[in-house]
Every structure is written in structure tokens, then in C-alpha cells.
């Protein structure tokens, strides 16, 4: 069973624990700038929206990579970057319509959410269950997948 991050923005308080946890998990430092999940804060509407890669089926980042540095795990569906193969060309950063794969000038590579290998730190540290890690079918990604479909210029075959 594939699992996915389920984000219930209504429960988010904007505490940014997820950003700190992500940064620490991947970079070994607490620095929200280095997080692969970001909480968008809409003050006028008093809304907080945690936002990261949905591991979408279209996987533009993976399709477009000129050197095959991004692969999809057949079991988990996670799209991850092989840093040794990535040349840092950044084509994936413009091809992903969600803006959730970004270039790190320090490493010269791109980076994205990799679900922490199956135990995502953001979900683990979220104090209000705004981010949970559950069966993909229940995760309510339908909304973002709908946006993915609207951007898709080359829909997949109905196989």
C-alpha cells in the first residue's frame, strides 16, 4: 500500500515545526530556509497552508530530467533525486508546475521531498495532525492532482 502525506490546512497553526524537522532531517541543521516543506502564511485570511511535493503521477521533474537523475520507487511511488547523477541543470525546477523541486546552490544539485525514506519528519513532528502520513488513497491529494491534470499537456495513456 502506498502512503502519502495528507495535509489538512485547517488544522495548521503556522508553527513551522515541520519546516524545522525537515531541515534537520535532511541537512542536520534547524533552518527553515533549507526545508523542503513550506508553510505559507496568509495573514489576511488567517490561513496556514503547509506545502510540499505530492509525488504526483505526472512526475514532470522525472520525465524531463535529461540525465535520468530522478527515479520513482515502484513500491512507495516516491520520486527522489540521485545527487550523484544530477548535473544541476535545473530543467526540473521550471518543469514542475508546483515549484516543489528546487536548486541548492551550495550542493549544485536539486532537491525535493523524499518522504524521508518512509517516515516523514514533518508528519512526525506536526503537533496538530495537520500533516499525517497515511494510505495514499485516503490522503486527499485529489485536489492537487486535479491541478496537475490541468497543467498536463501530455496525459498518460489509459492503460
Amino acid at each position: 500500500m502506498q502512503k502519502a502525506l495528507a495535509i489538512d490546512a485547517g488544522k495548521c497553526t503556522g508553527c513551522k515545526q515541520c519546516e524545522l524537522a525537515c531541515s534537520f532531517e535532511h541537512e542536520g541543521i534547524f533552518n527553515v530556509v533549507r526545508s523542503r516543506i513550506r508553510v505559507f502564511i496568509f495573514e489576511e485570511e488567517a490561513r496556514f497552508v503547509p506545502y510540499t511535493c505530492t509525488q504526483c503521477d505526472q512526475a514532470w521533474c522525472m520525465q524531463v530530467c535529461p540525465v535520468g537523475a530522478i527515479t520513482s520507487d515502484p513500491m512507495s511511488g516516491v520520486k527522489s533525486v540521485n545527487a550523484a547523477t544530477c548535473v544541476g541543470c535545473k530543467v526540473c525546477t521550471i518543469a514542475c508546475p508546483f515549484g516543489t523541486i528546487n536548486y541548492n546552490a551550495g550542493s549544485g544539485k536539486v532537491e525535493k521531498c523524499d518522504l524521508c525514506g518512509g517516515d516523514p519528519a514533518c508528519a512526525r513532528e506536526c503537533p496538530t495532525d495537520a500533516i499525517t502520513f497515511i494510505d495514499a488513497g485516503l490522503a486527499g491529494y485529489a485536489k492537487m492532482q486535479d491541478w496537475a491534470a490541468r497543467t498536463d499537456t501530455a496525459p498518460q495513456a489509459a492503460s
Binding site: I94, P97, N102, R150
Partner: peptide, 13 residues
Amino acid sequence: PEHVGVLRGLIQS
């Protein structure tokens, strides 16, 4: 450099 992909999302969708 951050989140530039949303430009594609905003335009193409």
C-alpha cells in the same frame, strides 16, 4: 531560484 516552477503552473493551468 525558489519555487520558480509555479510560474509554469500559474500560466499553463
